[in-house]
Amino acid sequence: MRRFTLIAVPYLWLLALFLVPFIIVLKISLSDVALARPPYAPHFDWATGIWAFLSELDFENFVWLSEDDLYWKAYLSSLKIAFVSTVLTLLVGYPMAYAMARAPEEWRATLMMLVILPFWTSFLIRVYAWMGILSNEGFLNQFLLWTGIISEPLTILTPNTAVYIGIVYTYLPFMILPIYAALERLDDSLIEAAEDLGCSRLTAFWLVTIPLSKTGIVAGCFLVFIPVLGEFVIPSLLGGSDTLMIGKVLWEEFFSNRDWPVASAVAVVLLLLLIIPIVLFQRNQQKQQEAEQ
């Protein structure tokens, strides 16, 4: 009986507040816009029965998504931004994780704390910090003008550069931590063995360190790629009006256009897009767990 309660309480909670909402999203994505409250039709009605209800559902919104190239472009541009920023975060994060793992042991806890600290600080504030730096009359332009490198303010905020900087900045800890964990476990004698067998420092790094930190790299990349794909705050604060990301489109569809069925359809497609990386990520995590045993 006690075991039953233990399982039932969290189970029912998640069913009611996680699974059921999804079914609702799916259903609304198949409905039509209506001038009503809530603004969609049909509504389920016991009187007419389930078949009458189901027959009114259709894929109209998905057809609409595939026809309007705004959505296409938004999905593609989200994928591109997520991909490029994942690569950039890896390029910044790997050397840091590597240096942390190589640092004297008594420093490591402090370095770790320095990486985690921004992670606990508000996401919004960290994005906001870059607004002051990257805007046209922002700190970076002031600084560059002052040093004489440029003579006219650069516009950094409008193109996607600012979005990339913001993403790399906010997601850096997600990249560093799994890679650091993998590198820290790495036995120094493996590198020494490689050198002993004739490798230079660089070949030893390439043939031993990189392959053995692969699970960390893959985990870090997915931890950045997956949430960035649906990112809303960074493109809306740092991006320009032409920065297309699907999270932003969904938000606007919902709050500005009040087109709930289309917003739901956008969400369903985003979810489908995410399934592949999520499954790959899970597989990587499983492999890592097996390797640890």
Partner: peptide, 26 residues
Amino acid sequence: FSGMIYAPLVMPEVITGLSLLLLFIG
């Protein structure tokens, strides 16, 4: 059950937010 535990970790916030809102309205 374990799927429902792990899924929200990778779910985009916009989707979680939207779906919960629709639930509350419903």
